[in-house]
Computed example of a mutant assay.
Amino acid sequence: MIIVPLKEGENIERALKKFKRKFEKTGVIKELRDRQAFTKPSIRNRMARMKAAYRQSLQQAEE
């Protein structure tokens, strides 16, 4: 359960923004989307390697 403490006179929009940020950090939506379709472990590993190679290429291009 996510609790967002409100200060006296704090705007409701600001509190809602805090709630959305905390909710996104929990990763519930990401996990829900991942569970909608099964991905084989070999494909998961391949995607992780591709992401790592992409990040590495970006870092090398930056230097």
Results as ranks from 00 to 15, higher is better:
residue 26 T to C: 07
residue 27 G to M: 03
residue 39 T to A: 10
residue 63 E to S: 11
residue 12 I to G: 07
residue 16 L to Y: 08
residue 44 R to F: 01
residue 58 L to F: 09
residue 30 K to S: 13
residue 47 M to D: 10
residue 39 T to K: 15
residue 2 I to G: 01
residue 53 A to S: 11
residue 44 R to E: 13
residue 59 Q to W: 11
residue 3 I to T: 02
residue 29 I to S: 07
residue 1 M to D: 07
residue 19 F to L: 12
residue 49 R to W: 02
residue 38 F to H: 00
residue 16 L to C: 13
residue 20 K to F: 12
residue 18 K to T: 11
residue 31 E to H: 15
residue 5 P to Y: 04
residue 11 N to D: 15
residue 53 A to K: 15
residue 60 Q to D: 15
residue 53 A to I: 08
residue 22 K to G: 05
residue 14 R to Q: 14
residue 57 S to I: 07
residue 52 A to R: 07
residue 8 E to W: 11
residue 46 R to G: 01
residue 53 A to H: 10
residue 2 I to F: 01
residue 9 G to I: 05
residue 58 L to D: 03
residue 45 N to C: 07
residue 19 F to I: 09
residue 55 R to P: 02
residue 49 R to C: 04
residue 4 V to I: 02
residue 33 R to V: 02
residue 34 D to H: 12
residue 19 F to E: 09
residue 55 R to H: 05
residue 55 R to W: 07
residue 63 E to N: 08
residue 16 L to P: 06
residue 51 K to R: 01
residue 57 S to M: 13
residue 27 G to C: 03
residue 18 K to E: 12
residue 50 M to R: 05
residue 60 Q to N: 14
residue 8 E to M: 08
residue 35 R to E: 00
residue 27 G to S: 05
residue 40 K to G: 06
residue 5 P to S: 03
residue 8 E to L: 06
residue 40 K to E: 06
residue 7 K to Y: 11
residue 4 V to H: 00
residue 56 Q to D: 13
residue 4 V to T: 01
residue 52 A to N: 04
residue 28 V to D: 13
residue 58 L to W: 06
residue 19 F to Q: 08
residue 36 Q to M: 04
residue 62 E to F: 06
residue 41 P to F: 00
residue 52 A to H: 08
residue 49 R to P: 01
residue 52 A to M: 03
residue 6 L to G: 05
residue 10 E to L: 04
residue 61 A to S: 12
residue 59 Q to A: 12
residue 37 A to H: 15
residue 51 K to L: 01
residue 18 K to C: 07
residue 1 M to W: 05
residue 35 R to Q: 04
residue 11 N to K: 09
residue 29 I to F: 14
residue 14 R to M: 11
residue 61 A to K: 14
residue 9 G to M: 07
residue 45 N to L: 10
residue 17 K to C: 08
residue 37 A to S: 14
residue 54 Y to Q: 14
residue 53 A to Y: 09
residue 41 P to Q: 00
residue 27 G to T: 04
residue 3 I to W: 03
residue 31 E to M: 15
residue 42 S to K: 02
residue 3 I to F: 02
residue 29 I to A: 06
residue 10 E to F: 06
residue 10 E to K: 02
residue 2 I to M: 01
residue 38 F to D: 00
residue 42 S to V: 02
residue 5 P to R: 03
residue 53 A to R: 14
residue 18 K to L: 09
